[in-house]
Design a protein around this nucleic acid. Structure first.
Lengths: 265, 265
DNA sequence: ACCTTTCTGTTTAAAACAAACATAATATGA
DNA sequence: TCATATTATGTTTGTTTTAAACAGAAAGGT
């Protein structure tokens, strides 16, 4: 492993974990504390992280840890694995919709280095993820649910009615063999439904915790999906009940599925 | 000064400066380093800041320092002073538009503790500022100018055509006695013009560096404005050429214009 | 092969940190 | 109001982290 690989690892590690200790990095990377420290100095100068006493934290943080990031960290490995696979489906030149949510947010993190890509989203945190990139972003607009940064309501709906896209990555809190995909409010269900209608192909992205649940407002039936991308905690037997095309990705432990280079297809 | 005042000061200081040293705070507040350190521990536990080695940095940061924040820091004191005054115009129950821009972003920072307020904006960074607050936010949507986080284009325009609000705080890069308010592209000018049309009263917020300049696309004439809020580097003689109602606020040095409490009028 | 540059680890001194105790300020309640 | 409890602050102390400086190792170029 060369110096750049190591520094890239530190960079992704601090983003994943939210904070890191020099001691941990020392063990993890097998180099001396001084070297880590020099790496951190370098990365701090490049605004990739902020050094703390004995470690570092990420630069980009828009949200209150307590309200959002904890939730985001649940099943983070799973979400990242799902996101990494989802990103491989996206082709150069595509126009895609990224639904609001933490799993789709992870997809955004993977796609941000792409060029020749248009993203439509109703999540300001996802939109913000693409700041200072070459990705073309269209924000739906609408009423901001200001706990999570998602937008819903008539304005959101009217934009979605006017568009047609190649791909949709749909998030959900509940998917059930009989009930299909459901949402907690009619408003949210309506927006998700319009997204499905606007897209050529819809992929559901959901970690195993969402399976077997159902909520009040119906979004669509499972037949409307192109497939489901989930993690391997969902047993293969269980998954048969859901869809012909269910992709069960293994939760990545280390940064093996590294799609961090730009895609110049 | 009691402990809470001091901690509040530290909090605003770290937000203003972007980072602070314990040594500086020690001199500034006249207490020992240990006390500062205890304050920082406390504020870190409340997610108000992140401690570094020898100081602290803000928690909320969404953007790359190099591309945006430097620009934002230009005339920051002036912008803050203008913003503090602008906020006093906003009444409980108002619905307002905050145009994209750094000065209007400062207004958002002042208003975020309000309740009973609706904000419409075409700037995702301003929208993000209101996350986890009680302010009701409507995002215009549209194409994201991904260097600055502003949205423009047909979608933005169509929302603005449908609304009517009490107040607009309009930002600009150029204001001129004869040319009025101008913008660098037709698209931007169109959005700003629609904002003016949607608002009962329009206040222009602009620091002195914007005066006497003009750009290509016309937004509106100066007569369309309710008034101009600027800083006192614009001479009173000079300002007469612009508008009857021009408010020249002194650039605040310390946190004297402190409108950080919530407004429960 | 040689030289140069970059990278890394070790040593060491300085700086920051935090625990513990003592003192001062503030609050609370009879 | 006074006594008492609580909270806040400063100082001392030992520990940890930092960073400068040097030396050796690795990588790159001619």
């Amino acid at each position: 492993m060369n110096i750049n690989e190591r520094r890239k690892l530190i960079e992704t590690e601090v983003l994943d974990k939210g904070k890191i200790d020099i001691e941990d990095l020392e063990k993890m990377l097998g180099v001396s504390a001084m070297t880590i420290r020099r790496d951190l100095m370098h990365l701090e100068k490049e605004n990739k992280l902020i050094r703390t006493h004995g470690g570092a934290v990420p630069v980009k943080r828009i949200i209150d840890e307590t309200s959002y990031e904890n939730k985001e960290k649940q099943y983070l490995q799973e979400k990242k694995a799902i996101a990494a696979h989802a990103a491989t489906i996206v082709r150069p030149g595509d126009t895609i919709i990224l639904d609001s949510g933490t799993t789709t947010h992870e997809i955004a993190r993977v796609l941000k280095n792409r060029e020749n890509l248009t993203v439509i989203t109703n999540d300001i945190l996802i939109a913000a993820e693409f700041l200072n990139t070459h990705v073309h972003v269209i924000v739906t607009g609408g009423e901001l649910q200001n706990q999570v940064g998602a937008m819903f309501g008539p304005h959101t709906e009217s934009l979605l009615e006017d568009i047609h896209v190649d791909l949709l990555f749909l998030g959900t809190h509940a998917v059930h063999p009989a009930a299909g995909i459901t949402a907690p409010t009619l408003e949210k269900a309506k927006v998700k439904r319009l997204m499905v209608q606007a897209a050529e192909k819809t992929w559901l992205v959901a970690d195993h915790s969402k399976f077997g649940k159902s909520s009040f407002a119906s979004v669509c039936r499972l037949e409307a999906l192109q497939g489901i991308i989930t993690n391997d905690n969902v047993s293969s037997k269980e998954s048969e009940a859901y869809h012909d095309t269910i992709i069960r990705v293994p939760s990545q432990k280390e940064g093996n599925v590294n799609e961090n280079r730009s895609y110049r297809g």
